[in-house]
Amino acid sequence: MRAATQERQGHGIRWEIVSPALLLIVWQALAMLYPGRLFPTPIAVAQQMWTFSASGRLPLDMAKTLTRAAIAFFISMGIGSIIGVAMGRNRILDRLFSAWVIVGLNMPAIVIAIVLYIWLGLTEFALILAVVVNKVPLVITTIREGVRSFSADYDELGRAFRFPLLRRLRLIFWPQLVPYVLAAARTGLSLVWKIVLVFEVLGSDGGVGFRISELFQFFDIKGILAYTAAFILVVLVFEYGVLRPLERSVLKWRMDRA
């Protein structure tokens, strides 16, 4: 039973490795079919990436963007989770603030950034705050759904066996919330990456977005793709190096099916 499961997982991992390679092959083929300055091959982009890295520019910009994204991500996960749990547990709070959440979800990201830049100036704080304001409603919605879906049966189990609050939180509530936290983290991260870049284009003193906007002035598509590819590489490393192993570890009980 376990051998069969491992074999299935092995197959899955092999396909996941094949997937990006396939994308590169398609890209290379298309670039060879339509050669030109505005459609560089992946090899040319990789060379450009190496040049930027060697000059120290790319790592510096990447570090700036990643720091902004990480700060915004953790702040929004924290605030969003607290509010999401409160709204999921308390019907009055939920009714009182659900319109705010809807407004937050549908407010164009660019508007939030512009307004905050006008109010607070082109500062680091304004940029991070703009990302947080954009991301928090999404976290709230996901976590609130998670809390709403808590099983009343497990709640009753906790009461029948007189679980103290901490044990109830650790053994009953938290495991039910984990899939939603992971979902919020994953969708949130993809949103944060994108928004940080857009806001950096709009106004910042460095970072991937800022550099891409600079390269855009010169129609340097190779440079733009080099930065984008480097950024995507980081995202993939985070996905496969952190998120997936974490998911496999905390949701093991779901995967090991008979």
């Binding site: 029948a160 044990r167 053994l171 009980w253």
Partner: peptide, 23 residues
């Protein structure tokens, strides 16, 4: 508290059999 056996087994699915007992 009494030893309660529910209609459904109501084991916590994220814990092993042993950990369900220790829970």
């Amino acid at each position: 508290p009494a030893g309660f056996v529910f209609q459904d087994s109501r084991l916590l699915p994220w814990l092993t059999a042993r950990d369900n007992i220790r829970a």
